[in-house]
Design a protein around this nucleic acid. Structure first.
Length: 552
RNA sequence: GCGUCCGUGGCUCAGUUGGAUAGAGCAACGGCCUUCUAAGCCGUGGGUCGCGUGUUCGAGUCACGCCGGACGCACCA
């Protein structure tokens, strides 16, 4: 809010003048003034702990400092300043400030929730990046929900963000995919077959194979084994990738760039290794090439090219991240499953070895998901005997509930996902609770339209004085700040909680403040507030990738 | 053994880069529909913030050490 900055400035000016008058003697640099919304209404609209933080610098008791600052602030939009507790300064705004702030939001409602562009800093975020050898499971689902929400939040906060999916389509797993499909192909066509040792057994491989047979029949039977493997690899890969994209799109997840690992082979990998070698970061031992990653804090050095000349996964990853930096991003973010945390150190070490600032590569870890049904841990799908897929989850609980449940917890916390709760269409289910608030508002607009009541250009906001109205208004004011913090902390759960609280505030308002049947000006002011509320709920839900239904 | 994350009412979790009397939801109990969706609202009870030491005017939050849980520790990806 504008007011927030005005208060900060006023405190700063007051402190400086107290210093120049010699009343306060500074023995160090003043800290940044932080202004927060106090935990209780009685503590005013905003408060700062500035006096407590500067007690040491001024060699003065906090309450005395607060007193001196307070006596030097006289803004006509301030109702009063109170000094409380150990030295908190609580600011109380005059009522009309709230209404003019609300008017500002109302006048540019379409932009409310979109913060001004931050200069520079192009950010790239890579997430999901599951191998194209099977279906996405619930763990990928959490990553997909978190990654896409973080992208949305960063954009709302004004950052320039590009999202990317890294397709691991160049390693052993592709060979295994080909061998697995080949085995199923022969099997389905009645040929004797031995299933490959490291093959993929999941039923989706059979589905993929059946699709190939439906379209092309047995025409690949006559090919020599190695040629058939090659053909089937391409066909299976295309199918798996298409399925992946389909599931993600259904889950409200879209990527700007799909980056194939094959693009790194062999030139970009060779180039990266060449650079490392020139920088003296690579040595040869036992016929393999090693990266001296211990120099940068890794536990041990890592092989980048095997004895047989084939680069390791790490080599590709080094080339990949080098490529990202070369594309001009100044901040890279990777969202990985927590089971990959042991990998962080070596990748960062490699970036340092290449001469990049490893701090510009931020790796977020996502903790594991456990599904519960009827209070029991669900490990495997009843239908397939394999781990539960994202597709099955979407079918069972719906996209909105699945996304919200994935996002309502911090990414650092292991998630217990209650399937029964996610399916419930009642107040116990937070998703429905929030969506219901939006649907209720839409219903109000349908009702008011019937009697010809519409939102005016200049609502008389100052007519709204009850606690329920003021609380709702103040909750709306918090939204931009909440986006800023969620972006800074990569914390979608902040938005999930905020929109829940906003819905709760609206439900209370709905109970206390009728629109039909009250004074017309008041009704119109309330209708305008309700419009702002609907916009904010919908905007926040959009950030989470959850829909805002107009009726339920 | 080493590393990462977690430990907050019966259950699932928030807790604003250290701040005021630790908050929600579920579960339990008691109220509220002749008026815009009761998928809602209002109220009551329930806590040694895993344990200990330290830093600080102030610690759920920071540091160190334990205890407990999850996940990792490849010339796999």
């Amino acid at each position: 809010m504008d007011v927030k900055q005005k208060i900060i400035d006023a405190v700063k000016v007051a402190a400086e003048s107290a210093i120049s008058e010699g009343v306060l003697k500074s023995t160090g640099e003043l800290p940044e003034i932080s202004l927060e919304v106090p935990p209780k209404k009685e503590f005013g609209d905003f408060s700062t702990n500035f006096a407590m933080q500067t007690a040491k610098i001024f060699h003065t008791a906090p309450r005395k400092i607060a007193d001196e600052i307070k006596s030097r602030i006289s803004e006509e939009w301030l109702e009063k300043i109170e000094i409380a507790g150990a030295g908190f300064m609580n600011f109380y705004l005059k009522a009309d400030v709230i209404y003019s702030e609300l008017k500002n939001i109302f006048d540019e409602l379409e932009n409310f929730g979109q913060l001004p562009n931050k200069k520079n800093i192009p950010i790239q975020i890579e997430y999901v990046s599951a191998n194209p050898t099977g279906l996405l499971h619930v763990g990928h689902g959490r990553g997909a929900a978190a990654g896409s929400a973080i992208v949305n939040i960063l954009r709302a906060a004004g950052y320039n963000v590009e999202s990317e999916y890294y397709i691991n389509d160049a390693g052993n797993q592709m060979e295994n995919l080909a061998k697995s499909v080949n085995a199923r192909y022969l099997e389905l066509l009645g040929q004797p077959v031995e299933f490959p040792e490291n093959g993929y057994h999941a039923v989706d491989i059979i589905d993929t194979t059946k699709k190939i047979i439906e379209r092309d029949g047995d025409k690949y039977l006559s090919l020599p084994e190695d040629e058939r493997l090659k053909v089937l690899e391409d066909l299976a890969y295309a199918d798996k990738l298409a399925e992946l994209k389909k599931d993600l799109a259904n889950f409200q997840v879209n990527f700007d760039v799909w980056f194939s690992e094959r693009k790194l082979h062999p030139d970009k990998i060779n180039d990266a290794i060449k650079v490392l070698r020139e920088r003296g970061e690579i040595y040869e031992k036992d016929g393999a090439l090693w990266l001296a990653s211990t120099k940068y804090g890794d536990d041990k050095d890592r092989v980048v090219v095997r004895e047989n000349g084939v680069p390791t996964y790490l080599a590709a990853d080094i080339a990949y991240h080098k490529d990202k930096f070369e594309r001009g991003f100044s901040q890279l973010i990777n969202l990985w499953g927590a089971d990959h945390h042991g990998y962080i150190c070596r990748v960062k070490a490699a970036m340092s070895a290449l001469g990049y600032n490893a701090d510009n590569l931020k790796i977020l870890l996502l903790q594991m998901v456990s599904l519960y049904r009827g209070g029991e841990l669900v490990k495997m799908s009843k239908r397939t005997g394999e781990s539960i897929t994202l597709r099955e989850l979407m079918e069972e609980v719906g996209t909105d509930a699945a996304r919200y449940f994935f996002l309502m917890r911090s990414i650092d916390s292991q998630l217990d996902f209650d399937l029964d709760l996610a399916k419930k269409q009642s107040s116990e289910n937070p998703v429905y609770y929030i969506q219901y608030a939006h649907a209720r508002i839409c219903s109000i607009f349908r009702q008011t339209a019937e009697v010809g009541l519409t939102v005016p250009d200049a609502p008389k906001f100052s007519m709204m004085t009850t606690a329920a109205e003021i609380d709702l208004i103040n909750k709306i004011f918090e939204y931009p700040d909440e986006i800023e913090k969620a972006a800074a902390e990569f914390a979608p759960q902040r938005i999930a909680r905020y929109v829940y609280d906003l819905a709760a505030q609206f439900h209370s308002f709905y109970r206390d403040c009728r629109i039909l049947g009250v004074d017309e000006d008041l009704a119109k002011a309330r209708l305008a507030l309700v419009k702002i509320t609907a916009h904010t709920i919908k905007h926040a839900l959009n950030l989470l990738g959850v829909s805002a239904p107009t009726s339920m």
